[in-house]
Amino acid sequence: MKLSVRHRTHYRYSVAASQSLNQICLIPRDTTTQRCLQAAVVVTPAPNSIDRRVDQYGNSLATFNLNSAHKECDIIVTSLVDTLDTPARLPASAPVDTNVSLLKDLHDQDALMARDCLLSSPSIPMDYSVDPIIAELPIGETPVLEYATMLMNHIYTTFTYESGFSTLVTPLTDIIAARKGVCQDFAHLAIAVLRRQNVPVRYVSGYLETLPPPGEKKLQGADASHAWYAVYSANNGWHDFDPTNNKQPDAQYITTAWGRDYADVVPIKGVVYGGGAHRLTVEVDVNRTEAPPILVENN
């Protein structure tokens, strides 16, 4: 399936910002189930250059500086991605201990990342906060991929999606106490539960195609970016799980980037001098298409 994505981020500053330095992680990467056919970044006001590089996990990053005074900044990333459906049935996997000891003998990039994903990470420290969830659903001898499915289902059925409930810094203990959250919280929760039980697990950021109610026209800019988790099985690699929708991501999902947690793949991070208070608006459109979007890069 071919999907086009248009992700627009707009900053408006109360006073002029004299300089800003930005790094964006919004260009979809290639995976075993998707190919990014085209991608373009357009920034207004135009920077001298937009530099692209690939980070250690293979994600696409772009950096740019704005060196003269500006009161707003508009960043539009457009891409065209070809996605494949994943097989409906999960392959067989091993229980935790076997999985970890199998991993010890693997040294390819996937396995190295899997080992990194056994440890605490910037936003998910190793502590006791998720122990109540583990008590509800202990892993025991369950094969890791099977457990990942059970956990996805458990979060979906015992937690309520509530937008606006959490912020970037809401700790997992609050999410667990309220049994509420959004996609990022659910992904982080699952990651903490799995890592605490020695299962390699990573954070995936991306998009999801949404369909309008039958008979209605799809709203412009109403799609959203999304987040889920992926578990590593030493027998057959990484597998994705979306606890927000209780679904294994399929051709409707676009992967942008992956890392140990949100902090590794922050969509836009930057430093601005001056600027006062800023207002942020974000619009995302994901559409089925055969024709590529019109791409006019800055340079």
Binding site: Q19, Y161, G164, V182, T210, K269, V271
Partner: peptide
């Protein structure tokens, strides 16, 4: 040159946090 000012850090969360679409008909909420 610019006076040394507070660095304003900004990080954009997945927009699911900001403008979540509750689209029941599609069977998907994210």
């Amino acid at each position: 040159t610019e006076k040394r000012q507070e660095l304003g850090h900004f990080r954009v969360p997945p927009t699911g946090l900001l403008t979540a679409v509750d689209n029941d008909e599609s069977g998907v909420s994210h």
